[in-house]
């Protein structure tokens, strides 16, 4: 039993509610990603669960036990920090063993865990280096090894990949995901990068200004965004959202709909439809992103491969009614159309 469950969690910094009545649960052995723009309260939630901050309201349960007021060391969690939090004066070996020594794990057990963890993350040959002599990816591995040796069932990660370059990031992402499954960790992973969220998560918790915007599997969030914010936060380029009034369209059977959203990959170049002017063409190899303008409003379309469209051209775009998302004036989703 090591699932996490938080109920009505509140954290107040002065007048500002950084975390506002947040509730969700993370199933044992699953990976949940806390996703949201910078400053939305992701780290604060993670730190409340770890016990590094104290909650102003609500409960944190780990494995069924209420840990809201429990000392961080006794919550059975390990944490990977964005900066890795390696001790600069200790070598890799001592960094990995730090926690076990504090907890007075006996020497032979320590050694066994060290060897196992070092092998898992490929650090065997670097045990005597200082953190300053390691690359970013290697430091990240040391931080992971610390989590592994701790044998805590819950792992909290705060933007663990944001200090790495793009290639390494993809590699470490896979590695973290692999470890999570291999060790059957209950993991809560904070990121502002939707690609990390989409590719790793069993469940995504999308946050905005300290509140949950939407929660669910990645595909659910992508295909059924419950708000304009969710629709535009997930997906690159983001979803096109246009006021219905600006496209002279009324959509049958959607009371209260004020805005219409279509993902860029669902826009087709057609002979009839919405008239647009091409502002720019971004060729990316496998696909091309067209930046379009309709009556002063920007749209994006994603087409496969190369296209003969050039900036300045005027053309029409069309979409399948099934690919339309409708939102009301306040940006909330209007019930899905049948048909």
């Amino acid at each position: 039993m090591s699932g996490i469950r938080i109920d009505g969690l509140v954290k107040q910094w002065g007048d500002m509610r950084a975390v506002d009545e947040v509730s969700f649960s993370v199933g044992e052995g699953t990976l949940t990603v806390l996703l949201g723009p910078s400053g939305c309260g992701k780290s604060t939630i993670l730190r409340l669960i770890a016990g590094l901050e104290s909650a102003d309201g609500g409960r944190v349960r780990i494995g069924g036990d209420d840990v809201t007021r429990l000392d961080p060391a006794r919550r059975r969690v390990s944490m990977v920090f964005q900066s890795y939090a390696l001790f600069p004066h200790l070598d890799v070996r001592e960094n990995i063993l730090f926690g076990l020594k504090v907890r007075r794990v006996d020497a032979s057990e320590r050694e066994a865990r060290l060897v196992e963890a070092a092998k898992m993350v490929g650090l065997e040959s670097l045990l005597h280096r200082k953190p300053a002599q390691l690359s970013g990816g290697q430091r990240q591995r040391v931080a992971l090894a610390r989590t592994i040796v701790s044998k805590q069932p819950v792992c909290l990660m705060d933007e663990p990949l944001s200090n790495l370059d793009a290639k390494l990031r993809a590699e470490m992402r896979d590695e973290i995901h692999r470890l999570q499954r291999e060790l059957n960790l209950t993991m809560l992973y904070v990121t502002h990068d939707q690609i990390e969220a989409m590719s790793m998560a069993d469940q995504v918790v999308l946050l905005r200004d300290g509140r949950i915007e939407q929660i669910g599997e990645p595909a659910w969030l992508y295909e059924h965004p419950q708000s304009e914010f969710a629709a535009q936060f997930l997906g690159t380029p983001p979803m096109n959202v246009l006021p219905l009034s600006s496209i002279d369209a009324t959509v049958a059977g959607a009371d209260g709909a004020a805005k219409l959203g279509v993902r860029p990959e669902k826009l087709r170049l057609a002979d009839t439809g919405l008239p647009v002017e091409v502002a720019a063409v971004d060729y990316m190899g496998a696909e091309t992103v067209l930046r379009l303008v309709h009556r002063g409003r920007a749209l994006m379309a994603r087409v496969e491969g190369r296209t003969h469209v050039a900036p300045g051209d005027t053309l029409h775009v069309a979409w399948d009614p099934a690919d339309v998302h409708l939102f009301d004036e306040r940006g909330r989703r209007v019930r899905d159309r049948k048909a």
Partner: peptide
């Protein structure tokens, strides 16, 4: 860095 202290705290140092 304050994270060093926090990392130690999580282990109960």
């Amino acid at each position: 860095p304050p994270e060093l202290k926090e990392a130690a705290r999580l282990e109960g140092a």
